[in-house]
């Protein structure tokens, strides 16, 4: 029979594990983000504030198997540049642990919303 103290200890351990998982996930996320930034060449018609939302599908090796445009910006050249930025990355580094991969990286969304353009 579990004492309340033991329950509390286990709950805290679970919390700690959760935080660590999120921290790990964040490290992967920022790596993915960096890869996409390095591959994203915006067309000259791109303007700050445009938004394109993509859905990215990976396999456990991290390879990009599909990219779809969920919500376009209204500027085809801009949307095309966003899709190309993900496709050019080809493969992302993802968690080796299956549960973590399935939870966050099997499919995820990328929102392209430039704020560093001149116009």
């Amino acid at each position: 029979m579990e004492t309340s103290l033991a329950r509390a200890i286990r709950a805290e351990q679970n919390d700690r594990k959760a935080v660590t998982d999120d921290e790990k996930a964040m490290a992967y996320v920022s790596q993915i983000q960096r890869e996409i930034i390095q591959n994203w060449s915006r067309p000259p018609s791109a303007r700050n504030g445009m938004q394109a939302l993509l859905k990215v599908y990976l396999v456990p090796t991290g390879e990009v198997v599909n990219v779809t445009l969920t919500q376009g910006s209204g500027n085809d050249a801009f949307d095309r540049s966003a899709v190309l930025a993900v496709r050019k990355a080809e493969r992302f580094v993802v968690p080796a642990e299956s549960a973590q991969f399935e939870r966050n990286f099997r499919e995820f969304e990328v929102l392209f919303r430039p704020d560093d353009l001149r116009l």
């Binding site: 919390d15 959760a18 935080v19 999120d22 996930a25 964040m26 996320v29 920022s30 993915i32 983000q33 960096r34 996409i36 930034i37 390095q38 591959n39 994203w40 060449s41 915006r42 540049s81 966003a82 930025a85 939870r103 966050n104 990286f105 995820f108 969304e109 990328v110 929102l111 392209f112 919303r113 430039p114 704020d115 560093d116």
Partner: peptide, 27 residues
Amino acid sequence: LLGIVLLALPVQPTWADLRIEVTKGVD
């Protein structure tokens, strides 16, 4: 990058839907 990552800090412990924001490019 830091700004975005911090913004992306989950409210819930698990991320049901992961959304990555990209606001910079290399052009």
